[in-house]
Amino acid sequence: MTEQAGHILDADVIAELHAGTPRGDVLEAVDVHRRYGSHEVLRGVSFGIQRGQVKAILGPSGSGKSTLLRCLALLEPLDGGEIRMEGRRLGVRDGEGRAARLSEATLARQRTDIGMVFQRFNLFPHLTALGNVMLGLTEVRGVGTAAARGIAETMLERVGLAHRAEYFPSELSGGQQQRVAIARALVMKPKVLLFDEPTSALDPELVGEVLRVMEELAREGMTMVVVTHEIGFARGVASRVLMMDEGQIIEDGPPDEFFSSPSQERTRRFLDAVRA
């Protein structure tokens, strides 16, 4: 990773991200509710993410951060509210008055513009690093094997793993696995990339290599939502920092403000606990 040179994203993607494009929300949650049995995990969450923005979401465990990301990624049905991408409502078919959840096959197509990186990497153990990165291209994007291999090799090189392309996940360190997972999501050219505590399962000395990739992505203008406990990352990289508690967003501000003078007592207590 140290010899990271050049960009992670394709040059044309970066150019497009930096072009003076309209600043509407790429992805938006509108009053999202989600229940597990009688427990309400999300209680009316609304927030949007603009193109090129990085939003960090902090909050205690059980506050609904991961559930929110899964809802944004269309991996979970909503019990209320909407997910919108570039103004278009996702996940449901607008029928006569009542909205019906789309079939899994149709949802799959809508998901291709949303990338997701998991806490436990979730690499496919039966495929090499290269195979993991290629799978979405060949199975979803319909790219031929040879072309997919080329794209995947390039992306692995950009995250510093060219020399590990033929290794299986079980032979890689946690940091390497997470970088493969990021590459796997990036080759799909998602409009937004969601990270669910991407460094929480890593040994401390491996956190840096993953964060550096994420920082580089942010610099290049990638639109990202990052659920994290890495205060340093949230402070240094995010354009907005959100605090979640008990299924709601209770604080939303620019990092300086968020960390120096949070408006909520709950946020202050959480930050004290995390910093301690």
């Binding site: 991996l75 096959a105 998901r111 949303i114 997701m116 979730n122 799978l135 796997r184």
Partner: peptide, 14 residues
């Protein structure tokens, strides 16, 4: 479960 989740997140059909 993470295996199916990751595959679905990539946009793979069932």
């Amino acid at each position: 479960d993470g295996q199916r989740l990751a595959a679905r997140a990539l946009g793979m059909a069932p």
